[in-house]
Design a protein around this nucleic acid. Structure first.
Lengths: 189, 189, 189, 189
DNA sequence: AATGAATGAGGATTCATTCAT
DNA sequence: TATGAATGAATCCTCATTCAT
């Protein structure tokens, strides 16, 4: 039964690699079989279809990302502390999971996911809910300037993702400085 | 001969639509033929292969985007004015060319382009060169805070692109306010 | 009108080249157009179809070959002289028309010609008829040993064709010696 | 696993038929699939491409031919006996394998084989090497007259192939007589 | 006569998926 | 569970041929 999990994981790993290296177009099941060491037959034993397999991969990656983002986060942090903490976590995740980052980019832009369930799952999480409470403009009960949510997202997590794509990693100091700059820019007062 | 251009354009238009609606995976030439009203044969008369066709589409889109970004820009603008101007142009472009925006996202994340020629062409432009001169940290001869280029890019054009993805358009006032917030955040002093 | 002939000839020349270089499979009209400098349209002005074009080419080649074989032949030669003369002509033709030789090989083995008219035309020639009279076993009124016609053909013209395929040309002396050896082998007495 | 071989063989058989009946041009994979009873998919499971399939067919045919030529041959035969034996074998092979003969003609003249590996394999065989030792002019250590190798080949195997193309088979007596005529013609003394 | 864009059936090949073993 | 041969529709692309100009 450990085997089961291993094989499933191996298949997902191989698909991750494949999609990152060659794109969703040009990621055939035959190549997946070769790469993963699983026969076409077993792949379909574990996943009902290619679509399901890819969605499963997305969910695995999303779960890992979610865990990484909130690692070490505690409810008694201030809004500022929370943001800085999560922001650094995000950078670290994107930096240490470059394949996953590239996969997410592609998955989200490719329209491979037709359903909107994906995000719903995310926003159902109580921790996320709590954070979202103050991660919004003051006039909506939060602590931030009056900026559209898209702007807030882009200026925080979007920035972390962009920075993680740089060829070299940034020092914690640099990152903290940047995070504080951002905080100043978006926080009210 | 006007027809020639028309047909080529029609094919590219149809491919843009197709990729945006269904993704690079699931954008077969047969569907393109149907959509564009061109026979499979002629498509290959105009483009040597599907790859070339997609690259040509990218180049067309990139050229339009480039023109849009610098529309109305003049060399006697101050750094601040330039940024605000281009930033608004970018937002407008992404807003009025949503298909193009989605295509670019997908093209760049899918690895459909293996060559790096694409960006090189962009940065060879003299206007871009001139702007890039001051769009960098003060210590490198620019007017900005000491931030990595990825951060600058994300905080400016990345933000514009994100905002453009919002369901509703923002008023010019809102946009200007956001742009100024950003300027304050990244400009030195 | 000289142009007409030139263009037709250019097309046939190009096809000869094409077939010899790439084979009947892989000799598309598009390549022919490129090579010959004629547009697809004109090719179809001169030849009703690809099949006809190839048959026309065959006929041109066959005619040239026929002329070459009987060049300098005169009716007052003895059987032995005739054979030697024609045999040397054949060798010379295959040697100086290597493309034509390769084309003939291919044309005849490929079944591109479904009709048997091709050979009929040849054997209708009065000169050929006269020669064929004594190029047969004595008991059928000829001057040769009792060998099947296939053997005679192979030992004479077949041999000439084979020799012509050698990398280097043979001297006239060598050829004459070989021809005499053959004559001795197949002539009665 | 016997099935595997069967299917591969069935595919090759069908291709042999196809090429012989319709030529290399006009031997589409679709027709092959129909004829062989294999789906397009499996054909590509067994052979990476049409080219490889045809080369494989050639190699199979060449191997059969090779075996047939040397059937019953023993090293203690005299040169004369060897030649006669192999010559008769050759005739028999071409006579009983007319499709194979036509295929070889076409394969070799069509330039479908670009590689020269094909012949190399043949001449690496030790039996062939041994025979080739005396199948050459006396002055090169053989037992034959001073004739170019092309001539020797044409006068022996070429002749056998030609005879086999005759509508009717020849009696063993006739063949032996012809073989002896040839031997006399090419052997020294 | 000449062009070359246009056609669309047909070519080789791939690929998600199934199924006998 | 696992295999990998088998399927056949769908893919990208070609090619003989036509036709408006």
């Amino acid at each position: 039964m450990a085997k089961k999990i291993d094989k499933k994981a191996a298949i997902l790993d191989a698909m991750l690699d494949l999609v990152v290296k060659r794109g969703f177009h040009d990621a055939p099941m035959s190549a997946l079989a070769r790469k993963s060491g699983a026969s076409p037959g077993v792949i379909y034993h574990y996943f009902p279809s290619k679509n399901d397999l890819i969605r499963a991969l997305y969910q695995r990656v999303a779960a890992v990302k979610h865990r990484a983002f909130f690692e070490g986060y505690s409810h008694d942090m201030s809004a500022r502390e929370s943001l800085l903490h999560i922001w650094l976590n995000a950078y670290r995740f994107y930096r240490t999971h470059r394949k996953e980052a590239r996969f997410l980019d592609q998955y989200l832009s490719s329209g491979y996911c037709k359903t909107s369930e994906d995000e719903e799952a995310e926003s159902a999480d109580p921790t996320v809910k709590r954070i979202m409470k103050w991660m919004r403009p003051k006039k909506h009960g939060g602590v931030l300037k009056d900026l559209p949510p898209e702007a807030i997202d882009s200026l925080t997590l979007g920035l972390a993702a962009s920075l993680a794509k740089a060829p070299k990693a940034f020092s914690k100091d640099t990152l903290t400085r940047i995070a504080e700059t951002v905080w100043t820019a978006i926080a009210e007062e």
